[in-house]
């Protein structure tokens, strides 16, 4: 058909009540095309239909109308599931299993041989920083720790396409940073990432392309860089400029027919500050 990894046409979901009466249109005639190797950010306010779309792409919900294709097949196709990974909004885990057991169980569902399964589980636990707690039952985990098990299980099969529903929610800034690095890693390996979030900074950090949902409709869709660039504004970042020499710069800009709006000190992001303060300690004694 086409070589889009994810493709929807007129995808619509109407939630009905027990008697089949229409209650709510969660997704309206959605057309999406995502190419191999893209990191796609799916944005939108609460209740705009992000999770509903993702569930249709995963075969958990059936579309009311329209079609969805993942890797060229119907989302319900079992062969497709071998090649995808999914991190739900929250981690829904078996509380009586430990982190290792959880990963090995999911590994078994993929038919991964025992030795590979064990190795892969260890690797992933290392990546998400759960090595020390891996033999404790998930019941005892904090929200963020459970979330990290969720991330690890989404990658157990080394998937080609990864669906991440709010991947950074509930994570501390360090793990959140690591999550974003992980996404960039996946991109480098040529994998496709479909992620939803309303943490705009996160999307900005990792996504190539974004779509913005509102009330079930896709309101904007395009390459992130183009979309946030303001055509006729230019930003200069200057190092080592003495404060008393700023005036000269302003005059030079005016002479070139530019309109100077503001001159400020560059700030680092709070994230960078936080990581600077906390990061080093945490790097040694990972929880």
């Amino acid at each position: 058909m086409s070589d889009f990894v994810i493709e929807t046409q007129g995808l619509t979901k109407v939630f009905t009540d027990f008697w089949g009466r229409r209650k709510h249109t969660a997704v309206k005639s959605l057309d999406l095309q995502i190419e191999r190797g893209e990191v796609f950010g799916f944005l939108g306010p609460n209740g705009s239909g992000k999770t509903t779309t993702m569930k249709m792409l995963l075969g958990l919900l059936y579309p009311t109308s329209g079609t969805a294709r993942v890797l060229g097949k119907d989302p319900a196709h079992i062969g497709t599931k071998e090649r995808i990974g999914f991190l739900p909004e929250e981690s829904y885990l078996y509380r009586f299993l430990t982190a290792v057991e959880t990963l090995e169980f999911y590994g078994k569902l993929f038919g991964i041989p025992r030795a590979d399964r064990k190795r892969r589980a260890q690797e992933l636990l290392e990546i998400v920083g759960l090595k020390d707690a891996m033999h404790r039952p998930v019941r005892e985990y904090s929200k963020g720790m459970a979330r990290r098990v969720g991330i690890a299980q989404a990658l157990i099969n080394d998937p080609e396409v990864v669906f991440l529903d709010e991947p950074t929610s509930g994570l501390d800034p360090l793990v959140s940073r690591r999550m974003k690095d992980l996404i960039l890693d996946l991109k480098r390996q040529g994998k496709t990432v479909f992620m939803s979030s309303h943490l705009l900074a996160d999307i900005e950090d990792v996504c190539d392309r974004v779509g913005i949902m509102h009330l079930g409709e896709l309101r904007a869709n395009g390459p992130l860089r183009d979309m946030i660039r303001i055509q006729d504004k230019t930003c200069l970042v200057v190092h080592g400029l003495a404060p008393n020499r700023r005036l000269e710069i302003a005059q030079a800009i005016e002479a070139a027919d530019g309109l100077l709006e503001d001159i400020t000190d560059q700030k680092r992001s709070l994230e960078d500050l936080f990581l600077g303060v906390i990061g080093q300690d945490k790097e040694d004694g990972r929880r």
């Binding site: 569930k55 995963l58 075969g59 958990l60 079992i78 062969g79 599931k81 071998e82 995808i84 999914f86 739900p88 929250e90 829904y92 885990l93 078996y94 999911y106 569902l109 993929f110 038919g111 969720g150 299980q153 099969n157 669906f163």
Partner: peptide, 11 residues
């Protein structure tokens, strides 16, 4: 909702 995790695997 553990079934989300199960049925998105090849099960």
């Amino acid at each position: 909702k553990r079934v989300f995790m199960l049925l998105t695997k090849p099960l």
